[in-house]
Design a binder for these strands. Structure first.
Lengths: 309, 309
DNA sequence: ATATTAAATGCTCAGATTAAGCATAATGGC
DNA sequence: GCCATTATGCTTAATCTGAGCATTTAATAT
């Protein structure tokens, strides 16, 4: 172990891939590299010796290809797609999630829900109810063994919130994988299989899956860390904040309870000003209390700890 | 982008590193490769062309070096330690978390709390209270600027549960990094700095940090996924289950509430038998209901979703 | 001007969840 | 049989959540 590339070791390239998210007009978007040809591609590039760290390399590629200078960046997942093996070597893709606000840049922003239309349930759940659920049922029946059918049914119900199960937004990656398994989405542009029901837009290589991974991380993380604020302007109303959260999760929230949630967590402070741009009664403006990032890391510990016994 | 290794690209090796956890005598342990010399090393090896996937490669190295055949495996994090640059190339380490039970194998099991003694608060919190907290205070005062002192104090308090902050077990990685920054732990065996207070045992390379990452993941994940059961025998008492959970989190739990938590989540079922091996009244034996892995993915969604408006 | 519509904001209430602890039940060791 | 020990059942108060009613304050239509 820890020996240099030898006998059976592979010569390989490490590719850095960015899932950069911003919200535009209440729809989350992902940044893609300037259109070259066919399917959209994420900003990416190989790790090079000039890069002090992988994260630095990623920032550099994103800046070079799109003009964006990222603030918030976190590592997502590392893929070794066997299909992307190059002559004599394999490509390892280390993916990162970046959050920003839309500014000046050369990148093209692709709306999340063009890639994953079933993930936006703010105005309607019709796509799942009327098309996906029936198609999945057909797939469930397609299994020959009873046990397989039961297992498939179970996964469909749990992942897509059918039956008594609730829809859980952060399960989007499982949903994508299930749809892929059921042959309802094409993994990439050159996917040879042709789904009967073509759901959403494909991307180059495995980039669509990587975006799904980023969405999953963001949706899961925003449950216990205040990451939404990286996507907000300096000052905002609670209505705007709620709209962005709803955009990310693809679900509507209860307005009064949402503001109570924000208030009791002490996440924001009033600026003293108001905005009358929102339609009805003017809304108070707030700003994020950056201090909370230091104060609290994780909310609940979900274990009945005790001091006594 | 996506070009083959060229001009400035690096020739590199992808190293697969395993953090394999098992619980022995109510203490979690991590599996290390058969002792070669000095500091303990995690099982690891380069990704090779014979490996169909990285996970397969990892399993193969672990089996080869320790004899263990892992069931539960998940990817942790990818490191590109600049210090581990080899001649002409960099080493990328893709780390994985594996869970198992202790069986026959050649690996040596190192107790977690020899590496991170302050993380075990089941019997006492004296180490933090009496040694670490004062040492950290000294470090806080060591900052010249007021703002720096405040920021350091903030982090210490939040990470180590000082002042009004609660101790959050899953923050162990932040705690490790803080101690490292404060010069209270040595990163690896060949760390040139010599901490005045040497806390815990060092490992080879960056392996101690990788273990900390694994512990963090396990502690965080067990809050919303039933992963503990991978570490349990087929049948167990609720007391044994609680003991393992306490071992992992390093915290004591409230017994009656713990069993209520388990019961109401429908995670286990009675076997019908009892065990009188636990000391007092015989305890009922239970087994994990594997079905729940399909049923429920994540517990709470922590957002006030609504159907109405 | 006045009514209407659209948000924003304040507040209540019932049900569910959680923290703590009292009380009782079975064993083994003495 | 008495005691220490762990298991198990249950209660109570405090807190948290989900839903929804009511009021405020603007823009807009009449």
């Amino acid at each position: 172990m820890t020996k240099v590339a030898g006998d059976h070791d592979e010569v390989m390239t490490t590719e850095l891939v960015a899932v950069v998210v911003a919200v535009l007009g209440n729809v989350p978007h992902v940044l893609t590299a300037p259109e070259t040809a066919d399917a959209p591609r994420l900003p990416s590039g190989p790790l090079q010796s000039r890069h002090p760290t992988m994260q630095a390399g990623l920032r550099s590629w994103v800046e070079q290809q799109t003009g964006y200078n990222l603030k918030y960046v976190e590592q997502l997942y590392t893929f070794a797609d066997p299909a992307r093996t190059k002559t004599g070597g394999r490509i390892i893709s280390v993916s990162y999630l970046g959050l920003t606000r839309v500014g000046v840049g050369q990148g093209n922003w692709v709306p999340w829900y063009e890639l994953f239309p079933w993930e936006d349930r703010r105005s309607s759940t019709a796509l799942v109810d009327e098309q996906i659920a029936p198609a999945l049922s057909k797939w469930v029946q397609g299994a020959t063994e009873l046990a397989h059918r039961q297992s498939r049914r179970q996964r469909c119900d749990a992942d897509f919130g059918l039956g008594d199960y609730p829809w859980i937004s952060a399960l989007n990656l499982q949903r994508y994988e299930l749809l892929y398994e059921a042959g309802l989405v094409a993994e990439s542009e050159d996917d040879v299989r042709v789904p009967e029901v073509q759901l959403g837009r494909a991307m180059a290589f495995d980039h669509r899956r990587i975006v799904a991974t980023g969405i999953a991380r963001l949706r899961a993380k925003s449950q216990y860390r205040p990451v939404v604020f990286e996507l907000m302007p300096r000052e905002f109303t609670l209505g705007q904040l709620q709209a962005v959260v709803e955009a990310l999760t693809g679900q509507r929230a209860h307005k009064q309870n949402f503001r109570r949630l924000i208030a009791q967590q002490n996440l924001v402070e009033e600026t003293g000003t108001t905005s009358r741009a929102t339609g009805g009664r003017p809304a108070r403006m707030y700003r994020f209390r950056r201090e909370v990032l230091l104060e609290r890391h994780i909310a609940g510990t979900r274990l009945p700890v005790t001091k006594s016994r």
